[in-house]
Design a protein around this nucleic acid. Structure first.
Lengths: 110, 110
DNA sequence: CTGTCGTATTACGACTGTCGTAGTATCTTT
DNA sequence: AAAGATACTACGACAGTCGTAATACGACAG
């Protein structure tokens, strides 16, 4: 089954931020880690990912800086800010509430 | 706390359909039942609700018919179709997967 | 008998985030 | 030499939600 993007929409920023909590990272790696962690259940589109970075940088949730791969290739890294951490925590709380709300309307089949 | 609409976005249709499972209903009542069931945690916007009806009728998930309130006032009722029931069941299954996916990225605070 | 609140719905344009498509560039593997 | 993986950017389209507003009727208070 595929997950519709409208469902995840409100959590893309949260997902990305969660992967920056422990250390900075960059687009391609984030993308792969999402795929791997979810066993390919969720594959974020590149455009969605990079536009999330831009938006979050504008909002002050992440900061970008130039880094280099082992082979010397230039990459754009992103680091989560304090504001980003706070936003992430709020979204985690919100999630608990959201889950409850939606599950009022879900009937599980046998 | 408020629930951001982007989170619910993918489930508005599902929520509305769930309230039509047992009997037909109409906009205003659906709206109130959502509020009541969620203890005001989720208050669907009127425009969102009515445009969902229109969209779902176009998709064949619901059928509208004219009904009358006790006082003789005209109302537009909606009835879920077989296709709508099927869609609803699919969304319920999808929800289980979605939940798992998102929870890979949620860290609960103490 | 007038105004406000609750009921019930519709119209319209703005906005945001995702998507499809495409293009660029380098490095690694075959 | 070609193909695939890495790494990113640009642009316009689209869908669903939102703000605002308007309409209309009944009930109830003052």
């Amino acid at each position: 089954m595929e997950i519709s993007s409208d469902v995840i929409r409100g959590y893309n920023d949260t997902i990305i931020l969660s992967l920056l909590l422990d250390s900075p990272s960059y687009g391609y790696e984030i993308s792969k880690r999402i795929r791997d962690l979810t066993d390919d259940a969720y594959i974020i589109k590149e455009t969605t990912l990079y536009s999330a970075f831009t938006r979050m940088e504008k909002n002050g949730y992440v900061e970008s800086f130039a880094g280099f791969a082992d082979n010397g290739k230039r990459r754009t890294y992103y680091r989560i800010t304090d504001k980003g951490r706070q936003y992430y925590q709020e979204k985690c709380s919100e999630w608990e509430l959201t889950k409850k709300v939606i599950e009022h309307f879900i009937r599980k089949e046998s």
